Amino acid sequence: MIPIASPVYYLGDWAGNVTDDYGVDWVVQTEDGWSSSPPIKPTQTDKSQGDGAWQGPGFYGARVINLKGTAIAGDRLSMLAAKRRIKAAIGARALAKLTVAEADLTLTSQVRLSDQIDISDKGARGFVWSLTVVAADPRRYSADSAQPSTGLPVVGAVGRTYNRTYPYSYPIPAGGTGSVFFNNLGDYDQTPAVITIWGPVINPWIAHVQTGRTLSFGITVLEGQRLVVDLLARTVMLNGTASRASAVTPGSAWFMLTKGLNEVQFRGDAGASGTGAVPVMSMTAASAWT
């Protein structure tokens, strides 16, 4: 594909503002919903006895994106094939990735088709098209994600050593706090992340320094197991299949990453290991924009 204008829109195997591999020029003439901020869901209630309203912090709604343009092919058969390609780019059921590449930044969003794809002929070799997609998560994410990780610092036992080995592994006491850092370059004040904790670790907890919120888990993650914490979906999964939401201890508070520099801390008791494995926490996150 050869870009012919900016930005370039990529959706499945289709792209807008390009000359595609079949020689068809796809021109996006109108865009609505991508460049603007998401719709706002205000939180307010009219005062029953007084002027004005009671008002709280609002929320962002789903992002609806409309694209309209023209397609010009070299011949009628190529034009007919182009119609089929744009309709095959996205369907009503599965999510698709919308990527928008601008001169300075490339951002992505997970979208689903929300209305029919309209197509109207324009001459013998061209047609006018329009499509509407919706992103349930209104954030526009950086195309590149970061995955910092940290081990669990431990303190070795203090005392006399003996030149003898016993066929048993004892838990290693945790002696410190590991930290991962992520710089959210976007302007979204609540950006999600996926945190993975690798065993062996007993009763792990994670804390977001900037908000002061902590999530702790009453669970033992054995060597070779992983506990995956999705901050957006608010799910806790062991080895990707078994829910462990019940392991979240009372007093825990879910959090999101903020704008700018974020520090997430990791603690727990290192469990028994037959191979010398140490507990590790990793975090996958991408900068997010409104």
Rank of each mutant, 00 (worst) to 15 (best):
V64L: 12
S246W: 08
I206V: 14
Y168P: 00
K41W: 00
V194E: 14
A253V: 08
F59R: 09
T177N: 00
D115L: 07
L107E: 11
G240P: 09
M256I: 00
Y188P: 01
H208L: 03
R93N: 08
H208C: 03
F266Q: 09
K259I: 13
G33V: 10
S36C: 02
V236G: 01
T43E: 05
V100W: 07
P173F: 09
I86P: 02
P250F: 10
I197M: 02
A253T: 09
P173Y: 12
R125C: 14
A143V: 09
W198V: 02
N203K: 13
N184M: 11
G240W: 10
A135V: 10
P279A: 03
S6R: 14
W205D: 12
M1V: 10
Y170G: 05
Q225A: 14
S246V: 07
S179I: 14
P57F: 09
G151M: 11
L261A: 14
T132P: 03
G260M: 14
V158C: 00
A288K: 01
T45E: 07
A247F: 12
N239H: 02
W289C: 04
K41M: 04
V18L: 08
V28K: 06
R85M: 09
M79G: 08
T30P: 00
A124D: 15
L113F: 06
S282A: 10
N183D: 14
A5G: 12
I219S: 01
V194M: 12
A73E: 01
T258H: 02
A285S: 12
S169L: 00
D121L: 15
I4S: 05
A253Y: 01
A286I: 05
W198M: 02
H208T: 03
G199W: 04
P204R: 10
W26R: 06
Q190C: 00
W26Y: 08
A288E: 02
V133A: 10
G176Q: 14
N183C: 01
G61Q: 15
G50I: 08
G50H: 08
G178V: 15
V236C: 03
S35N: 12
A247T: 15
Q55I: 04
D137K: 11
W129H: 05
V64F: 05
A101K: 15
N184T: 13
R84I: 12
M281S: 09
Y166V: 15
K259T: 15
R234G: 04
F255N: 08
V18N: 08
G268F: 09
